[in-house]
Nucleic acid binder design. Structure first.
Length: 271
DNA sequence: CAACGGACCTGCCTGC
DNA sequence: TGCAGGCAGGTCCGTT
């Protein structure tokens, strides 16, 4: 159930184990993901070595010495694990077996994930081409947010969740960042000052950074028999806390819907 | 262009 | 206990 911190934690967990390793065999059990797993995946990957595992937004990029990059997205319910994992379950779609004996497995019950190949620069791939800056990129600034916000009329929560504006801010961390910066999720983005949007930028960076740091502390558990990456306990201030007292002012946290997504905020701390 | 709603799927929880 | 309904951390795509 990955947002950017989970994807980054996964990347850091697997990269040291498979970088430099040769793909000996690819087993595809179920091709049905968001898009069908390409028929030629097995034949084109077998024999290549992984030279790097990168990330762009929530996409993982497995770069190989054959000039081919495998693009992998975990969707809503996907996870990667390093083996040995035991017998494959019904939602274990793919295995990659490496020459060193390591096995990487992708599980995805809801099948919103994706596995694709590209032989070109993956940044030019249609799925990645129009993505906004990484949250930790110096180009993601308050001015960047403000410049876009003044020309748009959506709720600010929808703006920060728009991958063309900045990548990696999913529903949980959008809620958290808006709480931290004291902005109501529903506020029209063009009616927020540059100063407050700058605060929102800082909050986005902080909330993602600290989640990644917490994930890092459990990385040692990444290789486990049951396979699931070590999900860390999140310290959430508003997400999922409808009706519970605000941790700052004790006012009950409210829950509304914005663009079909659950939204949580404190009616006194956030204006 | 921007905004919006629907679509893709399964699992899990709630309430009748 | 069974079943319907609602909800879930993503994001693409078609329509207006």
């Amino acid at each position: 159930m990955p947002e950017l911190p989970e994807v980054e934690t996964t990347r850091r967990g697997i990269a040291p184990h498979i970088t430099g390793q040769r793909i000996q065999e690819v087993r595809v059990r179920h091709r049905g993901l968001r898009w069908p797993v390409p028929d030629e995946l097995e034949s084109r990957l077998t024999g290549l070595s992984v030279v790097a595992v990168d990330r762009r937004g929530k996409y993982l990029l497995f770069r190989t010495d054959g000039g081919i990059t495998m693009i992998l997205h975990l969707g809503m319910s996907g996870s990667l694990s390093l083996g040995p994992q035991g017998p494959a379950g019904p939602h274990d779609h793919l295995d990659w077996l490496f020459s060193g004996g390591v096995r990487l497995r992708m599980r995805d019950p809801r099948r919103f994930g994706a596995v694709l190949l590209t032989e070109n620069d993956p940044m030019d791939h249609p799925l990645l081409r129009n993505l906004g800056p990484e949250p930790f990129d110096p180009r993601f600034t308050g001015e960047h947010l403000y410049g876009i916000a003044k020309a748009r009329r959506v709720a600010v929560k929808q703006l920060v969740m728009d991958a063309r504006v900045v990548v990696g801010v999913g529903n949980i961390y959008a809620n958290e960042a808006l709480f931290l910066s004291g902005i109501r999720p529903k506020r029209p983005c063009h009616r927020i000052s540059a100063n407050r949007l700058s605060g929102l930028r800082d909050a986005v960076v902080e909330v993602l950074q600290s989640a990644i740091e917490q994930g890092g502390t459990t990385l040692r558990d990444f290789v486990r028999e049951d396979g699931r990456p070590g999900y860390f306990a999140r310290r959430l201030r508003v997400y999922g806390r409808a009706g519970l007292p605000c941790l700052v002012c004790a006012e009950p946290i409210r829950q509304i819907r914005i663009g079909q997504r659950s939204t949580f905020f404190c009616p006194t701390c956030q204006t």
